[in-house]
Design a protein around this nucleic acid. Structure first.
Length: 417
RNA sequence: CGGGGCGUAGUAUACCGGUAGUACGUCUGCUUUGGGAGCAGUUAGACCGAGUUCGAUUCUCGGCGCCCCGACCA
């Protein structure tokens, strides 16, 4: 894409009321627009990042047999009353609205109830199970206090999956596959090393629940980890009993700040019983379906990647989620040969399947470099009188700052390897 | 929801009980051209309402909005 066509602009300074690093940088770089407290729009560059993350999650979910759907944002009051979760005293993040024809609807802050209810139409026999569905949904939560930029808002994109199993054994099998899938997702977005399956306070059915926590300086959670044993314990369940059951001592654990990027829950059969979700087993008996839920905050993950990898110059995207792989910075300044060279390079790279943001703007070098650093694309390729004379392009790795000089063939080879 | 802070051009800031100045940005011209350039010109502003006052952007009250700490976070 030609940068001159991009309607967004970069800013030198962030609005004074944005404190979170992720929001400051994403706003300055033009990835997002703030609509109100805790509510952000995703602009062309930001949307590309969201879609990149979604694609990775989608591939890993599909790999373990999940089927993608999309539920509704408007939800029925009666349904949530069945599980005693319509009340504002029980769920304090509800957005609700009156229907003109009478009655009330809720705006989806979660989709456990509607999906379970819907599944009554498709689950009748043990032959129908297991089923796992997932969706990418905009969740609406009436948070009292939005904060941390895009990491905790009133409106955010989440991947939520729901498993429907015959019983505990089948559930556990999928639950473990899901953990592996999540770890692959986090590996692919570049935080595998620092992301831990963390024991946290359990639900009603298990001693522990599992959170996926990523080490980051600005994290809001505190967990205790042992990197060798790959053990992580949320501070909320750090006690002698937990240490003993996990066969680890306090001295072997290190305290770190983390941000939660995913979580998984075992619902058991409680929700199915509340909602009347049963199947018939081989003996013709009615058995409640065993349920689980699995979430990854897509936009939260995007914010975390900014928080974790940004440097003093701006954003540094992992290659797998960057909006473009290459930032082609053209320093032509009225030199037609340079301009033509840049155009040719853009066409060559694009036809080789490389995603390129081409800074073809009529701007000075300093501004272009500063913007390039701020945008954070993995590889900057400079085309100028210098590089034209040298016969090689200047390539700068955004993360390491490493500079190399490559011919067209070398560059394409490097990018398509 | 408890506590605290803040609302001045697109952005960041300053001053002031007598209607607002600077920087960046925008636009124009000339010069410049590998790390946010220079000169000249241009554009654009007091969140809303009430009160005090001869006069309010400034003081008081209310509303709305935003931020931070805590609580909450299925």
């Amino acid at each position: 894409m030609r940068q001159s066509q991009l309607f967004t602009k970069t800013r030198r300074e962030a609005p004074k009321d944005e404190v979170a690093k992720n929001a400051q940088l994403l706003l300055r770089a033009g990835y997002i627009h703030k609509e109100m407290a805790g509510v952000y729009a995703y602009l062309p560059l930001g949307l590309r990042v969201v879609e990149k993350i979604k694609t990775i999650v989608r591939e890993e979910m599909d790999k373990i047999g999940c089927q993608e759907i999309i539920m509704t944002s408007l939800q029925r009051k009666e349904l949530w009353e069945k599980t005693s979760r319509w009340s504002d005293e029980v769920v304090d993040v509800w957005f609700k609205s009156a229907l003109k024809a009478g009655g009330e609807v809720g705006f989806g802050w979660s989709h456990e109830e509607p999906i379970a209810e819907m599944m009554k139409n498709y689950i009748a026999s043990y032959k129908d199970l297991p089923i796992v569905v997932y969706q990418f949904q905009t969740k609406l939560r009436n948070e009292l206090r939005a904060k941390s930029g895009i990491m905790r808002g009133k409106e955010f994109v989440m991947k939520d999956a729901y498993s429907f199993s015959l019983g505990e054994a089948d559930h556990t099998k999928f639950y473990n596959e899901s953990i592996d899938a999540y770890l692959r997702v986090f590996e692919r977005v570049g935080i595998g090393e620092d992301t831990f399956v963390t024991f946290a306070s359990g639900g009603a059915f298990t001693q522990f629940s599992h959170e996926f926590q990523t080490v980051v300086d600005t994290g809001e959670d505190t967990i205790y980890i042992n990197r060798e044993k790959k053990i992580a314990i949320n501070e909320e369940v750090l006690n002698d009993e937990t240490l003993k059951s996990l066969n680890v001592t306090r001295a072997e654990l290190t305290e770190v700040k983390t941000a939660e990027v995913g979580n998984i829950f075992n619902f058991g059969t409680q929700k199915s019983e509340d909602l009347g979700l049963y199947y018939k087993n081989e003996k013709g008996e009615e058995v409640p379906v065993w349920m689980g839920s699995y979430g990854i905050g897509i936009t939260r993950l995007m914010g975390l990647l900014v928080e974790k990898f940004a440097d003093e110059k701006g954003i540094v995207w992992p290659e797998s989620v960057a909006p473009f792989r290459v930032h082609l910075v053209e320093l032509s300044q009225d030199n037609e040969d340079v301009a033509n060279e840049a155009k040719e390079l853009y066409q060559e790279l694009t036809s080789a399947g490389v995603e390129v943001l081409w800074d073809d703007r009529d701007a000075r070098a300093g501004e272009k470099f500063a913007d390039s650093d701020l945008l954070g694309l993995p590889l900057r390729v400079v085309v100028s009188e210098k590089t034209l004379a040298a016969g090689k392009f200047e390539c700068v790795d955004r993360k390491s700052g490493h500079v190399s000089h490559k011919s067209l063939q070398e560059l394409i080879g490097h990018l398509t390897a």
